[in-house]
Structure formats: C-alpha cells, structure tokens
Amino acid sequence: MNSQLLIGYNAKNTLLHHLSGSTKLIGFVALSIIGMVTYDTRFLIGIFAFSLVLFKISKITFSEVALVLKVIIAFAALNLIMVYVFAPGYGMSIYGTQHMILGKSENYFNLSWEELFYIFNLFLKYTFAVPLALIFLITTNPSEFAASLSKVGISYKISYAVEIALRYIPNVQRDFRTISLAQQARGYEISQKAKLWPRIIGNAQIILPLIFTSLERIEVISQAMELRRFGCGKKRTWYMEKPFGKNDYLALTIVSLIVLTGIALFGLNGGRFWNPFTR
C-alpha cells in the first residue's frame, strides 16, 4: 500500500529528476525569496515562464497535481479579492499616479489601473513558485529530502525527523484504521450515516488509543536508532545523497544569475517596484 499523501515522489527519467535534491531545494528557496521581494513585473513574468518551462521538462502530469493546484488557485483568488476589498486604493499610493477605470479616487471603492497592476503583480508572486515547489516535491526521492535539508544547513537530527515522519505515516494510518473499526464495533458511529456530533465523539475515542500506541512505538524507534549510533557524531553522511554533478553546478549558476538579475533590477528601478506609470 502506498502512503496516501496528497502528492508524492514519482520516479521518471528527466533532467530534473537527476539533479541533486539539495540543488533543487536551494534553487527553489533562492528563487522564491527573490520573487517574494521584488515587484518588478518583467522579472516576475520571466521567472514564471522559466518555472513553467521547468515544469514541462519535469514531465509531471496534470492529474498528479490537479487537487493541489485547485486548492492553491482557490486560496490565491480569495486572497487577491481580500487585498482589493481591504485597500482598493493601495495601488495608487504605491505608484503615485491615478489612472482611474471606475469611480473617483476620493471614494473608498474605486478601480484604477495602478490597483489592477498591483494585484497582477501579487498574482504572479503567488503563482510562479507553485510549479517550483511541485517540482521539488515530485521529482525528489523522499529518501533524499533529509540529506538535502541537512546540506542547506539544518541540523541532521531535525532533518532526519522529516524522514522518520514519512516512514511512519503508513503505520499510523494503519493503526488509525484498526482502532477505528474496533470502536465502531463497540457502537460508536463514525460512518457518514451518523450525525455530526456523534461522529465527532466517535472519532475522539480513537485518539486516546492511537496516542498510546504511537508513544510506545516512538520509544522503540528511538532505542533502535540509538543502538545504531544515531546522534553519536556531530555530522552524518547520507546513503541516498546524490553527489553534485556538472548539471548541478550549471543549475546553481543559472539560479544565481537569475537572483543577481533580480538584485540588479532593484538598483535600476530605485526600489522593489517597477513603475510603468511615470515614464
């Protein structure tokens, strides 16, 4: 039985699958940061296109990520609407000009090209990182996650916790199912036939046995790890870590060039914003 995660690693033979997990993690984090900081629309469109191209190369099928995409789109849309509702005039105050489409600038609710442009920028910022995140999650073997995290400077004990969590998710799911069935036989209704309240009570009865079962397991696991010297040294090596190849250096060079371009644009624009209204 596969671990029923929302999205998961899918082994394929593409350039991105062959990159080291650390490269992908560094690339994702670096591009996300520069993209979050900048409001240069040309730059954002650029990396958006770049990440779409990568997504295409990674051969991730739409069906693998459909659910996650829908959730993200819904949240992004909600967020953008809220941004407008709470401050419809914010775009004008950023860009310092007033090109009205609807309403007057004195009213609370109005619509200006500046606001639309600002929201468009936000939209780009929300979306460009999504393909990158999905690429990292789907083209990186979970076995490599911990190694990648540790390589970017996170303590290996914390990094390994991620791996252990992934390892034991199926066990906890199985425990949950077993316990749930036993409680149903006693008479707790958890199925959809029951009303909401009895269902909540029924599910609550699973928690206590589940916690006890898990606690017991944690003790055994930590002993098993100690008996094989986990935590003995300050560092550890990783069997599944992919050594850096030519492509990794190339990829990191491209990422640094993009980040440098982003920083250079701050200087050119005299700030984080690129303002098309005043030229």
Partner: peptide, 8 residues
C-alpha cells in the same frame, strides 16, 4: 546503511 551513515 543507517549505522554507517551515523559513522560518517
């Protein structure tokens, strides 16, 4: 390989 990893 777990214990060997821990031995670096």
């Amino acid at each position: 390989a777990f214990s060997l990893e821990n031995d670096q």
